[in-house]
Nucleic acid binder design. Sequence first.
DNA 1: ATTAGTTAGATGCAAGTTAGATATATGGTG
DNA 2: CACCATATATCTAACTTGCATCTAACTAAT
Lengths: 248, 248
Amino acid sequence: MSEDAFLEAYDPAAFERPALTVDLVLLGLLEGRPAVLLMKRSWHPHAGRWAFPGSFVGLDETLDAAAGRVLQEKAGIAEGSGTRLEQLYTFGAVDRDPRMRIVTVAYLTLMPEAAFTQSLAGGAGLSAAVIEVPWTGEAGGPVAAYLAGDWDERAPLSFAFDHADILALAILRLRGKLDYSDVGFALLPEQFTLRQLQDVHEAILGTPLNKPAFRRRMLDRGWLVPTGAREAGTSFRPAELYRFQKPL
Amino acid sequence: MSEDAFLEAYDPAAFERPALTVDLVLLGLLEGRPAVLLMKRSWHPHAGRWAFPGSFVGLDETLDAAAGRVLQEKAGIAEGSGTRLEQLYTFGAVDRDPRMRIVTVAYLTLMPEAAFTQSLAGGAGLSAAVIEVPWTGEAGGPVAAYLAGDWDERAPLSFAFDHADILALAILRLRGKLDYSDVGFALLPEQFTLRQLQDVHEAILGTPLNKPAFRRRMLDRGWLVPTGAREAGTSFRPAELYRFQKPL
DNA sequence: ATTAGTTAGATGCAAGTTAGATATATGGTG
DNA sequence: CACCATATATCTAACTTGCATCTAACTAAT
């Protein structure tokens, strides 16, 4: 109908369009706690605030490809390193960027320990911030993040643009998928103990969990393969190390 | 860093950008079965195929606002009529439109009976197609749609662009939220029987459900308020009519 | 009027699942 | 070799789920 007529006559350069970017919420673990990789902005707008790495979407690249490119260029992580990219939500408020209209497709990025530390040490200007989730339940709300070094001062860092909202939604999504999908494993190294897995779940959910029940649920799912190896360096009984086996 | 420098020096018109649209998956019920509203394209590309109504996103309107505008302009439904808009996913394949690069933000639109029929009769060129979901479980897959009139011939209609994928994802999302959210009620009229509710669930899930168990779960949730009124026009015991009361 | 037929709605029971608490086993340290 | 902190196994009560059955309400045919 009229839409088609409009489209047919549409000159690609005739109208102003919003710019389109992708932004990556790079999640990993820092000392067993969920953490996110951020860049401190040195220029206006929002100088001094913290933002997710992102990029404009090229004319000839998929959204997923653009996200993968950011992962490589800004985080130094090649695709297929176990890092998982998943589209989160598209943010399109008119005034989210003061310079011009920018719509951004946010990606949730789950990094295993190796990729996370490698990216942090890569010198690309990324810093890790530990995420504190003050809310429980499914309502959502604001999420505070603290720089890893300033743990004593505990001044929550301030986000650029609408990135605080994006992070809050990322946590919400993570929670929702936590116990019916395999996202919990995506943050852990290849071998891990059940205690580590439980710590991750507890940190993301913001609730303590019952240990035996958690063990059972995880093992009964059939996704965990015992390696026979044991945790090292403990002064008590070492836990068995497990590997994650994809559900077929 | 380099991104900021790039952004600072960025001339909004310097580079080609993808065009940005919103597309609406308008879901409702037709004779108790899930159905979707589609427009038949009369012009190229994809002439003769069926597409969701959509529109370009204006420079000064939110994504949600653009979706609301489409709902009004193409479906004749004013906002606040009980119709619910929810962002579904953003599709960004490079060649999804042969004319130019278009990224689209798909919206899942749940229409109560009144809005659905009103929109169908509104003369805006929308036709209703009954959705047949051949797959069960959570894997997803292709979704077939049949024009309401051609029920005997049962020739599945063919979708324009990647709209078949969009519909499949919409059904998948709907299923996932069916029994922990209130999406099931959004498709029904204000007053409905438990049997109607169960039919909707069964049609969306593609599985028969146990009647007493379904009753209990729904009533125990506390979202249903009996109105005291009864269904009319049956030749057997009339069912109680319920109203949906939002979970506080 | 009576009865057959159809579906709504309620009840009861058995099987399976889950959570929590408790008890036992294990490996390392001083 | 005791001690300790944790892993791992066992047990039980509570809850959920599915299935079968029974009664209620209404129409239509006899």
